[in-house]
Amino acid sequence: MNKIWWKILSFILLVYTIVCGFLLEVPRLDILNETIRNLYFHVCMWFGMMILFIISFIYSVKYLRGFNYRNDIFARHFAAVGCLFGILGYLTGIIWVKVTWVTDQGQSLGSVLKEPKLIGAAIALLIYGAYFVLRGSFTDIDKRARISAVYNIFAFAMLFPSIWIIPRLVGSLHPGAPGSDSGNPALDKNDMDSTMRMVFYPAVIGWTLLGVWIATLKIRLSIISEKNIFEIKKMN
């Protein structure tokens, strides 16, 4: 956690993302035009969110296996930074919607609001929001850690249907939906240009590492501030 190499790697990858993301050639497509470069930022937020939620889920499971309070702190802060990435993804999506779906595709606001991926992502983020409400409502630390770990597993299970499965079943303005000609837009090799792929994957790794870094800072802070709890636990 205190090693420095992956923090530097994150920095280098993000510098690479910005330099190559703006300067390299991208496919010339109608409607998208230059906004296709948002892939390196908007989509990376969601990928980062997924990875952070997966880490949070793993720590919740680990907590339930040994009831080590440390794992609860890890799970909590990874979920928090995951939510931050999700909110950033949502905000960047709003800006992107305005110039592609609303202005150029002539979608009405109503059809954009009915977009299943937006609703699904909102549901997923609200479920994770409830995770923090739930945590805050306990005064007993052990009970809080235990119940919120179980809830976190449930929230993670809900994440997949709400942002991956349902939007691809019912049709969505996002790529990868039935009716659009792409399969899995991020992972299928036919759907993304190889030059874009060269920037996209490092970008995902860079943004995710930045998220992990922020999460570890928060974890270290709360381990320091909750030092007393650890000492009491050791005495018992």
């Binding site: 010339r28 497509l29 109608d30 409607i31 035009n33 230059e34």
Partner: peptide, 9 residues
């Protein structure tokens, strides 16, 4: 491809 459609920056 400066003259080609679609427009880019």
């Amino acid at each position: 491809f400066a003259q080609a459609e679609p427009q880019m920056a």
